[in-house]
């Protein structure tokens, strides 16, 4: 099996006062093309630090990252920009990630323009196609982001990520803030896009219920380390680590009522 993303021995320490805190301690993981790997763990386990390092927002103290066969950590300038088109990100709160005055069309136009995906003349049509792709009416193009719903905003964020036809999208708690019905819709949209376009996902979440709906494999993090990694169904059915067991036990289930109430 080929590998799209290979992360090896990633470590990152932060200073807090005169103490050193290990945010990441030797994290290794890999993602195949078209695959979804879920990174699951409690708050402070280091999940988002992995995402920030992948986006080169934070530099690790040690470790190697190979993306599409290229060493990601050494890249700068044009080479880094080229990789970024291929490695996109969707955050938890699109309102915090977007310029609030931007229009829907403007937000989707940014990556098309910056990465030179299509010429100026074709951009309106490319925007319309992307809006359709994520299930949004093309009439929304002129709206500002504060005028649309949270679910619509997250669809815009996905359209924006898809615009550069990336091989990998990092989804950092991307469905955590959504209403339950909207969350179910966005998860099926993500699955559909993966089926059609072969995009891989790194799905970062603390919610094992959402993870079960979308992930092929699960890596469980705690205290900056990966404490367990395996096929999604196996990890959920028989978690091997204490953190895995705690996460499974803590996931809310609908109570089962054996006898129907008259």
């Amino acid at each position: 099996m080929s590998t799209l993303l290979q992360v090896e021995g990633l470590s990152k320490r932060y200073r807090r006062g005169n103490q050193e805190v290990a945010a990441l301690d030797g994290v290794s993981l890999s993602i195949a093309p078209g695959e979804t790997l879920a990174l699951v763990g409690p708050s402070g386990s280091g999940k988002s630090t992995v995402a920030r390092i992948l986006l080169r927002l934070v530099e690790p103290d040690a470790g190697r990252i190979s993306f599409n066969g290229e060493a990601l950590l050494g890249l700068r300038g044009a080479a880094l920009r080229a990789i970024r088109a291929n490695l996109q990100m969707v955050f938890q709160d699109p309102m915090a990630a977007f310029n609030p005055r931007a229009t829907v069309a403007g937000l989707i136009d940014d990556p098309l323009r910056i990465h030179g995906i299509v010429g100026r003349a074709e951009r309106p049509r490319a925007i319309a196609t992307l809006l359709e792709r994520v299930g949004l009416a093309t009439e929304l193009a002129g709206r500002r982001v504060h005028e649309i719903s949270g679910g619509q905003r997250q669809r815009v964020a996905i359209a924006r990520a898809l615009a550069t036809r990336p091989a990998l999208i990092v989804l950092d708690e991307a469905v955590s803030a959504l209403d339950v019905l909207v969350r179910a819709d966005i998860l099926s949209l993500l699955a559909e896009l993966q089926r059609d376009e072969g995009v891989a996902y790194l799905f970062i979440s603390h919610d094992l219920g959402a993870v079960r709906a979308i992930a092929h494999r699960i890596a469980i993090m705690d205290g900056g380390r990966i404490v367990e990694q395996g096929e999604a169904a196996t990890v959920i059915a028989a978690p091997a680590s204490a953190t895995g067991r705690a996460l499974v036990a803590a996931t809310p289930e609908l109570p089962v009522f054996k006898e129907t109430v008259s």
Binding site: R183, D207, E253
Partner: peptide, 20 residues
Amino acid sequence: VSQPRTDYSRALLAAHLGLH
């Protein structure tokens, strides 16, 4: 939970993402 009377309650129950 076992006999919701409205479509909306049914939709909310169906959208729940559990492990089983």
